[in-house]
Computed example of a mutant assay.
Amino acid sequence: MTAQDHVHTDPADSPLGKAVATYRDTYAPELLYPMSRAPKREEIGITAANAGGRLPFMGADLWTAFELSWLTPRGKPEVALATFTVPCDSPNIIESKSFKLYLNSFNMTRFDSIDAVREALVRDLGAAAGAYVGVRLVLPEQFDAQPLHELSGLCLDRMDIDCDVFHPAPELLTAAFDELPVTETLTSNLLKSNCLVTGQPDWGSVQITYSGPQIDQAGLLRYLVSFRGHNEFHEQCVERIYMDILTRCRPVKLQVYARYTRRGGLDINPWRTSHPAAAPANVRNARQ
């Protein structure tokens, strides 16, 4: 029996916000808590019946784990960074606290090799997500080569604007439909939402690249700030932003990419695109 046999729809039943009496430090893939993407997608108008069952976007959730350790066959600890690529067309997300608890279960587990560690991660995460999950492990000798880079584009935060709406307000989005189309990349470091279950703050930076009618930048910034009081998981916030921009501003092409600060040694960086494109390099920014 795999984690995929226990797909959940209610985040309140997840480990989030609950005390953990005993942390497992030996391999326990059953700790993973997969949650169906479907209910939250239905809220924003994405259902299985849409466009013959096709999603209105492509993309992936790019995770980074900063706290991964295991034992060699002789009992010596090893450490690594790990990056995970979860395709957005997987039926499930993996609840982040369960992901952390699962990774902690490696701490006192002996593996024959780093390849065995990677194989376990690919197997277990794929079973939970319901699709192949890419895994890359970065060993300590490679740590110094890991880059740090801010999202590129024109930063909206330069504007001095009034903000008085703190729940998602797509009506703030407007575009110049009667003017020539543009192609531009806009960024903001002011994205903040809250955990769907605990209400704890989630801090992020967002990059929006589009071609089409020029989006009013002040309205877009006010819209992004409007998530400040909103409770939703990272992946769900990015898909809501994508769908609101797509619906209200009607771009020909659109990409939305957010990098959230880490919690529990994990960061989650969802990326959604309207067209085939290379995934962003999973490079952390200063706040991560």
Rank of each mutant, 00 (worst) to 15 (best):
R123G: 02
H230C: 01
V79K: 08
Y27Q: 02
F143H: 12
R37D: 02
S113T: 02
D144V: 06
D25R: 14
W203A: 11
L16D: 10
G126Q: 09
G204W: 01
T72W: 01
P201A: 11
P201L: 04
Y260T: 05
L180T: 15
L191I: 08
L121F: 11
D162F: 07
R118N: 06
T22L: 13
P168F: 09
H149S: 12
E67G: 10
I208N: 01
P147F: 12
Y242Q: 10
L254P: 00
A49G: 07
A286N: 09
K76S: 12
G204M: 00
T26N: 04
E42Y: 05
A3P: 08
S211D: 10
H6K: 14
A49H: 08
D112T: 14
S152M: 14
G17L: 10
P34L: 11
V79G: 07
E171M: 11
E78W: 07
P251Q: 10
R250I: 01
P201M: 10
N92M: 04
G265M: 00
A48P: 00
E184K: 14
F227I: 06
P213Y: 07
H8V: 07
L103W: 03
P251A: 08
M58Q: 15
S96A: 15
L221G: 10
L224C: 02
M35C: 08
S205D: 10
P168M: 08
G264I: 08
T174V: 11
L221V: 13
F106E: 03
M1R: 12
S105H: 00
Q255I: 09
E30Q: 15
M159R: 11
N107E: 13
E42I: 11
G126Y: 03
P29A: 03
H6Q: 02
L81S: 02
V238M: 09
L55W: 04
L101K: 06
Q200T: 04
P56L: 11
A286V: 13
P181R: 05
D144N: 09
P280Q: 09
S193R: 06
S274T: 05
L254T: 00
E67M: 01
V7I: 14
C195F: 05
Y27V: 02
V225N: 06
R250Q: 07
G45R: 03
W203L: 07
A279M: 13
H6F: 14
A286W: 09
G17N: 04
P140T: 01
L71M: 09
P280A: 08
F143S: 06
R24C: 09
N50L: 15
C237W: 01
S14Q: 12
E232K: 07
T26V: 11
R287C: 03
G17M: 12
P168R: 05
F99N: 03
Q214D: 12
D164M: 08
V283C: 09
A145Y: 13
S113D: 02
C237Y: 00
L68R: 04
M1G: 15
I161G: 08
A131P: 01
S96P: 06
T187P: 05
V197Y: 06
Q146K: 15
G45F: 12
D25L: 15
V133W: 04
V283K: 01
V86A: 11
D160H: 14
A116G: 04
G130D: 04
E141W: 05
C163P: 04
I241L: 12
H230Y: 12
E30S: 13
L190E: 08
Q207W: 00
N50C: 11
F66W: 11
K18F: 07
R24T: 07
P270K: 06
L148G: 05
A21Y: 05
A49I: 04
